[in-house]
Write a protein that binds this DNA or RNA. Structure first.
Lengths: 174, 174
DNA sequence: TGCAACCAGTTGCAAGATGCAATCGGACTT
DNA sequence: AAGTCCGATTGCATCTTGCAACTGGTTGCA
Protein backbone atom coordinates (compact mmCIF):
# COMPACT_ATOMS: atom_id res chain seq x y z
CA UNK A 1 0.00 0.00 0.00
CA UNK A 2 1.78 3.06 -1.25
CA UNK A 3 1.30 6.35 0.53
CA UNK A 4 -0.04 8.65 -2.15
CA UNK A 5 0.63 12.36 -2.09
CA UNK A 6 -2.52 14.40 -2.35
CA UNK A 7 -2.31 16.66 -5.37
CA UNK A 8 -2.32 20.16 -3.94
CA UNK A 9 -2.48 23.24 -6.15
CA UNK A 10 0.93 24.50 -7.13
CA UNK A 11 1.91 28.05 -7.94
CA UNK A 12 3.74 26.83 -11.02
CA UNK A 13 5.54 23.79 -12.42
CA UNK A 14 8.95 25.43 -12.23
CA UNK A 15 11.49 23.24 -10.40
CA UNK A 16 12.77 26.18 -8.37
CA UNK A 17 9.27 27.11 -7.34
CA UNK A 18 8.23 23.57 -6.49
CA UNK A 19 11.35 23.09 -4.39
CA UNK A 20 10.54 26.31 -2.53
CA UNK A 21 7.01 25.11 -1.94
CA UNK A 22 8.47 22.05 -0.23
CA UNK A 23 11.53 23.50 1.51
CA UNK A 24 11.04 27.27 1.37
CA UNK A 25 10.87 28.25 5.00
CA UNK A 26 13.27 28.90 7.82
CA UNK A 27 13.11 25.47 9.46
CA UNK A 28 12.63 22.56 7.06
CA UNK A 29 16.21 22.45 5.83
CA UNK A 30 17.50 22.99 9.37
CA UNK A 31 15.78 19.76 10.39
CA UNK A 32 17.10 17.85 7.38
CA UNK A 33 20.56 19.25 8.10
CA UNK A 34 20.44 17.97 11.68
CA UNK A 35 19.31 14.55 10.52
CA UNK A 36 21.96 14.40 7.81
CA UNK A 37 25.03 15.90 9.43
CA UNK A 38 24.17 15.58 13.11
CA UNK A 39 22.63 12.11 12.85
CA UNK A 40 19.61 13.10 14.91
CA UNK A 41 16.93 10.50 14.49
CA UNK A 42 14.51 11.12 17.39
CA UNK A 43 12.14 13.99 18.11
CA UNK A 44 13.89 14.90 21.36
CA UNK A 45 17.31 14.90 19.76
CA UNK A 46 16.10 17.20 17.02
CA UNK A 47 14.43 19.42 19.58
CA UNK A 48 17.00 19.66 22.37
CA UNK A 49 20.25 19.53 20.43
CA UNK A 50 19.18 21.97 17.76
CA UNK A 51 21.57 24.88 17.48
CA UNK A 52 18.92 27.40 16.49
CA UNK A 53 16.37 26.58 19.19
CA UNK A 54 13.43 25.22 17.25
CA UNK A 55 10.09 25.07 19.08
CA UNK A 56 8.40 21.72 19.57
CA UNK A 57 5.22 22.63 17.69
CA UNK A 58 7.19 23.87 14.69
CA UNK A 59 9.31 20.74 14.76
CA UNK A 60 6.24 18.52 14.90
CA UNK A 61 4.61 20.43 12.07
CA UNK A 62 7.68 20.31 9.83
CA UNK A 63 8.31 16.63 10.44
CA UNK A 64 4.71 16.00 9.40
CA UNK A 65 5.11 18.08 6.27
CA UNK A 66 8.46 16.62 5.30
CA UNK A 67 6.92 13.18 5.66
CA UNK A 68 3.93 14.15 3.52
CA UNK A 69 6.32 15.42 0.84
CA UNK A 70 8.41 12.26 0.96
CA UNK A 71 11.67 13.81 2.18
CA UNK A 72 11.77 11.81 5.41
CA UNK A 73 10.05 8.76 6.84
CA UNK A 74 9.16 7.57 10.32
CA UNK A 75 9.17 4.20 11.97
CA UNK A 76 8.87 2.79 15.47
CA UNK A 77 11.94 2.29 17.53
CA UNK A 78 11.84 -1.38 18.56
CA UNK A 79 13.73 -0.58 21.77
CA UNK A 80 11.10 1.78 23.12
CA UNK A 81 7.36 1.72 22.50
CA UNK A 82 7.05 5.49 22.41
CA UNK A 83 10.15 6.26 20.44
CA UNK A 84 9.95 7.09 16.77
CA UNK A 85 12.91 6.96 14.42
CA UNK A 86 12.99 9.47 11.62
CA UNK A 87 14.94 8.58 8.50
CA UNK A 88 15.89 10.38 5.35
CA UNK A 89 14.43 8.94 2.18
CA UNK A 90 16.45 8.80 -1.04
CA UNK A 91 14.76 12.10 -1.88
CA UNK A 92 16.11 13.55 1.35
CA UNK A 93 19.57 12.07 0.96
CA UNK A 94 19.89 13.63 -2.47
CA UNK A 95 19.58 17.06 -0.91
CA UNK A 96 23.24 16.71 0.01
CA UNK A 97 24.58 18.50 -3.10
CA UNK A 98 22.10 21.30 -2.43
CA UNK A 99 23.45 21.60 1.11
CA UNK A 100 26.98 21.61 -0.24
CA UNK A 101 26.23 24.52 -2.56
CA UNK A 102 24.22 26.47 0.00
CA UNK A 103 26.96 25.90 2.56
CA UNK A 104 29.62 27.13 0.18
CA UNK A 105 27.62 30.23 -0.66
CA UNK A 106 26.86 30.99 2.99
CA UNK A 107 30.47 30.48 3.94
CA UNK A 108 31.61 32.91 1.29
CA UNK A 109 29.07 35.66 1.81
CA UNK A 110 27.67 35.49 5.32
CA UNK A 111 29.14 35.96 8.81
CA UNK A 112 29.62 32.28 9.61
CA UNK A 113 31.53 31.07 12.64
CA UNK A 114 34.60 28.99 11.95
CA UNK A 115 33.53 26.01 14.03
CA UNK A 116 30.14 25.68 12.37
CA UNK A 117 31.45 26.19 8.86
CA UNK A 118 34.35 23.76 8.86
CA UNK A 119 32.01 21.01 7.73
CA UNK A 120 30.78 23.11 4.82
CA UNK A 121 34.39 23.77 3.90
CA UNK A 122 35.32 20.09 3.87
CA UNK A 123 32.22 19.26 1.85
CA UNK A 124 33.12 21.96 -0.64
CA UNK A 125 36.73 20.85 -0.93
CA UNK A 126 35.78 17.20 -1.15
CA UNK A 127 33.58 17.80 -4.19
CA UNK A 128 31.18 15.35 -5.81
CA UNK A 129 33.31 12.33 -4.93
CA UNK A 130 33.01 13.07 -1.23
CA UNK A 131 29.30 13.82 -1.59
CA UNK A 132 28.76 10.45 -3.22
CA UNK A 133 30.65 8.72 -0.45
CA UNK A 134 28.56 10.51 2.15
CA UNK A 135 25.32 9.71 0.37
CA UNK A 136 26.31 6.06 0.29
CA UNK A 137 26.90 6.24 4.03
CA UNK A 138 23.50 7.87 4.50
CA UNK A 139 21.80 5.20 2.39
CA UNK A 140 23.29 2.58 4.66
CA UNK A 141 22.22 4.33 7.86
CA UNK A 142 18.79 5.51 6.79
CA UNK A 143 17.69 3.01 4.17
CA UNK A 144 19.65 -0.07 5.22
CA UNK A 145 21.37 -0.31 1.86
CA UNK A 146 24.81 -1.85 2.35
CA UNK A 147 27.68 0.40 1.34
CA UNK A 148 30.84 -0.88 -0.21
CA UNK A 149 33.44 -1.32 2.52
CA UNK A 150 35.90 1.50 2.95
CA UNK A 151 38.87 1.78 5.25
CA UNK A 152 39.03 4.42 7.92
CA UNK A 153 36.33 6.60 9.45
CA UNK A 154 33.19 7.57 7.55
CA UNK A 155 32.47 11.00 6.13
CA UNK A 156 30.27 12.17 8.97
CA UNK A 157 32.87 11.03 11.48
CA UNK A 158 35.53 13.00 9.61
CA UNK A 159 33.31 16.08 9.56
CA UNK A 160 32.66 15.68 13.26
CA UNK A 161 36.34 15.25 14.05
CA UNK A 162 37.19 18.41 12.13
CA UNK A 163 34.55 20.29 14.09
CA UNK A 164 35.92 19.01 17.39
CA UNK A 165 39.41 20.00 16.37
CA UNK A 166 38.37 23.57 15.61
CA UNK A 167 36.53 23.75 18.91
CA UNK A 168 39.55 22.48 20.81
CA UNK A 169 41.79 24.96 19.03
CA UNK A 170 39.38 27.74 19.90
CA UNK A 171 39.36 26.87 23.57
CA UNK A 172 43.13 26.42 23.88
CA UNK A 173 44.91 28.39 21.15
CA UNK A 174 48.55 27.43 20.60
CA UNK B 1 30.68 55.64 1.73
CA UNK B 2 29.99 51.94 2.02
CA UNK B 3 26.51 50.75 2.89
CA UNK B 4 27.01 48.89 6.12
CA UNK B 5 24.80 45.99 7.10
CA UNK B 6 23.33 46.38 10.53
CA UNK B 7 24.39 43.48 12.67
CA UNK B 8 21.15 41.71 13.49
CA UNK B 9 20.97 38.82 15.93
CA UNK B 10 21.46 35.49 14.21
CA UNK B 11 20.10 32.15 15.29
CA UNK B 12 23.52 30.59 14.75
CA UNK B 13 26.70 31.00 12.73
CA UNK B 14 26.03 27.89 10.63
CA UNK B 15 26.28 28.62 6.90
CA UNK B 16 23.09 26.70 6.17
CA UNK B 17 21.22 28.61 8.82
CA UNK B 18 22.54 32.00 7.77
CA UNK B 19 21.61 31.31 4.17
CA UNK B 20 18.11 30.38 5.29
CA UNK B 21 17.87 33.58 7.30
CA UNK B 22 18.56 35.50 4.09
CA UNK B 23 16.75 33.38 1.50
CA UNK B 24 14.53 31.05 3.51
CA UNK B 25 11.06 32.01 2.39
CA UNK B 26 8.76 31.30 -0.49
CA UNK B 27 9.52 34.41 -2.55
CA UNK B 28 13.10 35.68 -2.30
CA UNK B 29 14.63 33.07 -4.58
CA UNK B 30 11.72 33.41 -7.00
CA UNK B 31 12.63 37.05 -7.46
CA UNK B 32 16.33 36.31 -7.91
CA UNK B 33 15.39 33.57 -10.37
CA UNK B 34 13.34 36.00 -12.47
CA UNK B 35 16.15 38.52 -12.45
CA UNK B 36 18.75 35.90 -13.36
CA UNK B 37 17.01 33.71 -15.90
CA UNK B 38 14.20 35.98 -17.06
CA UNK B 39 16.27 39.15 -17.18
CA UNK B 40 13.62 41.15 -15.34
CA UNK B 41 15.15 44.36 -14.10
CA UNK B 42 12.18 46.61 -13.28
CA UNK B 43 9.54 46.40 -10.57
CA UNK B 44 6.70 46.10 -13.06
CA UNK B 45 8.42 43.35 -15.00
CA UNK B 46 9.02 41.38 -11.83
CA UNK B 47 5.43 41.95 -10.79
CA UNK B 48 3.46 41.39 -13.97
CA UNK B 49 5.53 38.70 -15.67
CA UNK B 50 5.99 36.58 -12.59
CA UNK B 51 4.78 33.04 -13.14
CA UNK B 52 3.66 32.51 -9.56
CA UNK B 53 1.69 35.72 -9.17
CA UNK B 54 3.61 37.61 -6.51
CA UNK B 55 1.78 40.50 -4.81
CA UNK B 56 3.19 44.00 -5.11
CA UNK B 57 3.63 44.52 -1.38
CA UNK B 58 5.52 41.24 -1.02
CA UNK B 59 7.69 42.11 -4.01
CA UNK B 60 8.49 45.55 -2.57
CA UNK B 61 9.32 44.04 0.80
CA UNK B 62 11.59 41.33 -0.65
CA UNK B 63 13.42 43.72 -2.93
CA UNK B 64 14.11 45.88 0.12
CA UNK B 65 15.37 42.92 2.10
CA UNK B 66 17.50 41.49 -0.68
CA UNK B 67 19.08 44.91 -1.07
CA UNK B 68 19.74 45.17 2.67
CA UNK B 69 21.42 41.75 2.55
CA UNK B 70 23.52 42.67 -0.45
CA UNK B 71 22.09 40.17 -2.92
CA UNK B 72 20.78 42.82 -5.31
CA UNK B 73 21.25 46.53 -5.87
CA UNK B 74 19.12 49.31 -7.28
CA UNK B 75 19.89 52.29 -9.43
CA UNK B 76 17.95 54.88 -11.35
CA UNK B 77 17.03 54.26 -14.93
CA UNK B 78 18.44 57.24 -16.85
CA UNK B 79 15.69 56.93 -19.47
CA UNK B 80 12.86 57.49 -16.99
CA UNK B 81 13.00 59.43 -13.76
CA UNK B 82 10.65 57.07 -11.95
CA UNK B 83 12.09 53.86 -13.21
CA UNK B 84 14.46 51.84 -11.07
CA UNK B 85 16.79 49.19 -12.37
CA UNK B 86 17.47 46.27 -10.11
CA UNK B 87 20.73 44.38 -10.57
CA UNK B 88 22.25 41.27 -9.12
CA UNK B 89 25.40 41.81 -7.12
CA UNK B 90 28.30 39.37 -7.30
CA UNK B 91 26.75 37.79 -4.20
CA UNK B 92 23.52 37.31 -6.14
CA UNK B 93 25.21 36.08 -9.30
CA UNK B 94 27.00 33.39 -7.33
CA UNK B 95 23.67 31.90 -6.38
CA UNK B 96 23.66 30.32 -9.81
CA UNK B 97 25.21 27.01 -8.71
CA UNK B 98 22.65 26.87 -5.89
CA UNK B 99 19.88 27.31 -8.45
CA UNK B 100 21.43 24.62 -10.62
CA UNK B 101 21.38 22.13 -7.73
CA UNK B 102 17.92 23.08 -6.53
CA UNK B 103 16.64 22.88 -10.07
CA UNK B 104 18.15 19.45 -10.57
CA UNK B 105 16.65 18.20 -7.33
CA UNK B 106 13.23 19.65 -8.09
CA UNK B 107 13.29 18.23 -11.56
CA UNK B 108 14.07 14.76 -10.25
CA UNK B 109 11.64 14.66 -7.35
CA UNK B 110 8.78 17.07 -7.93
CA UNK B 111 5.95 17.31 -10.48
CA UNK B 112 7.61 19.86 -12.75
CA UNK B 113 6.24 20.79 -16.15
CA UNK B 114 8.48 20.08 -19.11
CA UNK B 115 8.49 23.62 -20.46
CA UNK B 116 9.51 25.18 -17.18
CA UNK B 117 12.14 22.59 -16.37
CA UNK B 118 14.00 22.49 -19.67
CA UNK B 119 16.22 25.31 -18.46
CA UNK B 120 17.08 23.42 -15.29
CA UNK B 121 17.91 20.40 -17.41
CA UNK B 122 20.27 22.32 -19.66
CA UNK B 123 21.92 23.92 -16.66
CA UNK B 124 22.38 20.52 -15.08
CA UNK B 125 23.78 18.96 -18.23
CA UNK B 126 26.04 21.92 -18.92
CA UNK B 127 27.75 21.56 -15.55
CA UNK B 128 30.16 24.02 -13.92
CA UNK B 129 31.59 25.16 -17.26
CA UNK B 130 28.21 26.38 -18.45
CA UNK B 131 27.52 27.95 -15.05
CA UNK B 132 30.75 29.89 -15.28
CA UNK B 133 29.89 31.10 -18.75
CA UNK B 134 26.47 32.22 -17.58
CA UNK B 135 27.91 33.98 -14.54
CA UNK B 136 30.30 35.84 -16.79
CA UNK B 137 27.35 36.92 -18.89
CA UNK B 138 25.51 38.05 -15.76
CA UNK B 139 28.54 40.01 -14.56
CA UNK B 140 28.55 41.82 -17.85
CA UNK B 141 24.84 42.62 -17.77
CA UNK B 142 24.49 43.44 -14.09
CA UNK B 143 27.90 44.71 -13.07
CA UNK B 144 29.21 46.04 -16.36
CA UNK B 145 32.24 43.79 -16.29
CA UNK B 146 33.27 42.95 -19.84
CA UNK B 147 33.09 39.26 -20.69
CA UNK B 148 35.53 37.58 -23.00
CA UNK B 149 34.01 37.45 -26.47
CA UNK B 150 32.32 34.23 -27.44
CA UNK B 151 30.75 33.19 -30.69
CA UNK B 152 27.08 32.43 -30.95
CA UNK B 153 24.18 33.21 -28.63
CA UNK B 154 24.65 33.67 -24.89
CA UNK B 155 23.59 31.18 -22.26
CA UNK B 156 20.36 32.90 -21.34
CA UNK B 157 19.43 33.13 -25.00
CA UNK B 158 20.11 29.42 -25.41
CA UNK B 159 17.95 28.64 -22.38
CA UNK B 160 15.20 30.85 -23.73
CA UNK B 161 15.34 29.24 -27.16
CA UNK B 162 15.08 25.79 -25.63
CA UNK B 163 12.03 26.92 -23.68
CA UNK B 164 10.40 28.32 -26.80
CA UNK B 165 11.09 25.13 -28.65
CA UNK B 166 9.39 23.01 -26.00
CA UNK B 167 6.44 25.36 -25.98
CA UNK B 168 6.13 25.19 -29.76
CA UNK B 169 6.34 21.41 -29.66
CA UNK B 170 3.66 21.33 -26.98
CA UNK B 171 1.29 23.47 -29.03
CA UNK B 172 1.84 21.62 -32.28
CA UNK B 173 3.00 18.05 -31.59
CA UNK B 174 4.53 16.29 -34.60
C1' DT C 1 5.06 -0.62 43.85
C1' DG C 2 5.70 4.00 43.41
C1' DC C 3 7.83 7.81 41.35
C1' DA C 4 10.84 10.62 38.65
C1' DA C 5 12.52 11.03 34.18
C1' DC C 6 11.66 10.67 29.52
C1' DC C 7 8.81 10.11 25.15
C1' DA C 8 6.45 12.40 21.13
C1' DG C 9 3.91 15.50 20.59
C1' DT C 10 -0.63 19.15 21.57
C1' DT C 11 -2.89 23.34 23.20
C1' DG C 12 -3.75 28.27 23.89
C1' DC C 13 -2.52 32.58 22.78
C1' DA C 14 -0.05 36.73 21.20
C1' DA C 15 2.53 38.63 17.56
C1' DG C 16 4.04 38.76 13.05
C1' DA C 17 3.83 37.54 8.04
C1' DT C 18 1.17 36.94 3.96
C1' DG C 19 -2.23 37.79 0.28
C1' DC C 20 -5.54 40.60 -1.99
C1' DA C 21 -7.55 44.66 -3.85
C1' DA C 22 -7.61 49.27 -4.07
C1' DT C 23 -5.02 53.24 -4.26
C1' DC C 24 -1.14 56.91 -4.23
C1' DG C 25 1.49 60.84 -6.21
C1' DG C 26 4.56 61.76 -9.64
C1' DA C 27 6.20 61.29 -14.59
C1' DC C 28 5.91 60.34 -19.19
C1' DT C 29 2.79 60.03 -23.82
C1' DT C 30 -0.54 61.76 -26.90
C1' DA D 1 -5.51 68.00 -20.55
C1' DA D 2 -6.28 62.99 -20.31
C1' DG D 3 -4.76 58.60 -19.98
C1' DT D 4 -1.10 55.49 -19.04
C1' DC D 5 2.79 53.87 -16.68
C1' DC D 6 6.02 54.09 -12.62
C1' DG D 7 7.43 52.04 -8.01
C1' DA D 8 5.43 51.38 -4.50
C1' DT D 9 1.84 51.95 0.06
C1' DT D 10 -2.48 51.21 2.65
C1' DG D 11 -6.15 48.67 4.97
C1' DC D 12 -7.78 44.49 6.15
C1' DA D 13 -8.65 39.51 6.68
C1' DT D 14 -6.34 35.35 7.11
C1' DC D 15 -2.54 32.30 7.83
C1' DT D 16 1.83 31.25 10.08
C1' DT D 17 5.16 31.56 13.73
C1' DG D 18 6.97 31.43 18.39
C1' DC D 19 6.63 30.68 23.22
C1' DA D 20 5.30 28.33 27.33
C1' DA D 21 2.73 25.24 29.51
C1' DC D 22 0.87 20.92 29.38
C1' DT D 23 -0.83 15.93 27.93
C1' DG D 24 -1.09 10.96 28.11
C1' DG D 25 1.66 7.44 28.07
C1' DT D 26 6.38 4.51 28.86
C1' DT D 27 10.52 3.33 31.10
C1' DG D 28 14.07 2.72 34.52
C1' DC D 29 15.17 2.70 39.17
C1' DA D 30 14.68 2.52 44.30
Amino acid sequence: MATEKEETAHRSGCPINLTLEVLGDKWSLIIVRDMMFGNRRHFRELLAQNEEGIASNILADRLRRLMAEGVISKKDDPSHKQKAIYSLTEMGIELLPVFAMIGAWGRKWLPVTEALSIRAQLLEEGGPDLWEEFMEELRQEHLGIPAKPRSGPGVRERLRAAYEEVMARGRAPA
